[in-house]
Design a protein around this nucleic acid. Sequence first.
RNA 1: CGGGGCGUAGCGCAGUUUGGUAGCGCACACGGUUCGGGACCGUGGGGUCGAAGGUUCAAAUCCUUUCGCCCCGACCA
Length: 555
Amino acid sequence: MRFSKLLIPTLREAPADAEAISHVFMLRAGYVRQLAAGLYIFLPLGWRVLDKINAVLKEEMEAIGSQEISMPILHPAEVWQQTGRWDVIGDEMFRLKDRTGRDMCLGMTHEEIMTWLASREIRSYRDLPQVWYQIQTKLRDEARPKSGVLRTREFIMKDSYSFDANEEGLEKNYQLHAGAYHKIFKRCGLKFYQVESDPGMMGGAVSHEFMAPSPAGEDEVALCNKCGYSANVELALSVPSEIKFEDWLYEEVHTPDKRTVQEVSNFLKLKPAYFIKSILVIAENTPVLALVRGDQELHEKKLSKIIGAHRPAQKTEVKEILGVEAGFIGPMNQKVRIIADSCLKEGIYVSGANKQHYHAKGIRPGKNFTAEWHDIHLAKNGDKCSKCGAELKIEKCIEIGNIFKLGTKYSVPLKAVFLDENGSEKPVIMGSYGIGPARIAAAAIEQNNDKDGIIWPKSIAPFDIEILPLNMKDSMTVEIAEKLYNDLKERGIEVLMDDRDERAGVKFKDADLIGIPTQIILGEKNLKEGLVEIKDRRTKEAKKVRVEEVVKVIS
RNA sequence: CGGGGCGUAGCGCAGUUUGGUAGCGCACACGGUUCGGGACCGUGGGGUCGAAGGUUCAAAUCCUUUCGCCCCGACCA
């Protein structure tokens, strides 16, 4: 296509409210414009990229036997009420009423509607398995839209759903999707990890996320290079690094006005790892004392899985319940339930002495206090892998896809059932699988850029080739450019030709910004010798090629 | 929802402290020169200063309310 006929509004300067690299470049290079918080317009280049990504998605979905369908975005409340999510989900769901006053909502995902369809159409084990997918808009009233297209209130998602007669079938579809996702992300040129994840409100027991490493990401992932263990830190297990213990005898130490681990650590000249951090929380009106090592953080979600919903205790509550000011509390002789991080099982520690301005040194777990042992700390860089003992590293990632084993969470309430070989009625076993195309695009930019702009992976670039006729007033330049343009198009190559009457510098700058992987540069001097330059956007290396050879070299 | 920041031309910003005719750069239009890494000279168009109310002879500037956007946190199919 011709640059002069396309809306490609490049910006010399980045709008002030863009922070993430992908956001800045998508705006500057004219891929998207923002309508409001979390609402984006995709301009021609941006839409072409999404089309490319969606084409890959479709191919790989079809390859595993998934059938494309399309579901409404506007949903009646009843279906969501039947699964309970109408009430479970809060402000994140857009709700409205139709003209008759009927409750409706905008779809944030499609488990309910897909299951509704399955309940109508699937009757026999002979109808199974089924796998349905769509590439459809989702709406979520996000608490905090951010980072350009990475977290928006309206976005397109490829979501697929599997329906099976038994667990083996689900496992098969789950693995087929995992395999397809690997191919998809690889084809889109992304670095990514498949990690264990927390199913959250989706329900179900098993889920994995596909994570593209990037500093713009919102998630953190723990990775083991040795054994391949990888998990979202929301549930990642780890073993804090070992420390050498001193054979302290139990004694109380005067620590005037030293309350935090850091303060006492500095005062006693002992590393934080020798301390036990005691945190009082209130779970359903029952106090629970949580213990983690001084150099670790308490992981709220892990604790929630053991004691349920809870909140931190207030200062006055600490005094009331434990009889000592926060800052000097320790696990010894406490009547409350104590949950301690497993790594504290061995060793000799320092903690509050349960006495104002005193800490106790030489605390031996098991002897000086007892507790229930669980992994309740947040995995951090340098911790050891719980599987193999190698060092874990923590990386920030963008979640680009996820897969869930749903089981019968949706099929039971929506009565999606079938008759098995014996004529007995059973709920369909389901899985759901999502991918965010705009996140793939953003992640690709985050992972592939330089100071001048985007460097698209070939597979998802808006065009294959950009032709730069540097001087549009030179008739030979124009003539050869037109010929190359047509010849390449005839070969099925997607070409963008910068036919604007702009100075060479402008064309170079815009071409680098836009990031089409290969540039064909037509300069007058080279053309007089029958040569053009073919330049690689990533390496910036250019080679001179005879005009007649271009089509052959490119294709 | 809590904390912080910002709303002045399409974009980036100054002006607000100390009230007194709304500015700069880029972009845009026209003329000329230039033409392989965001050219130069000249001329010109473009603003309810986010909105509403108030104080004042006079408000971008002071006061009140409100809306929007960004960042950190909480939250998160």
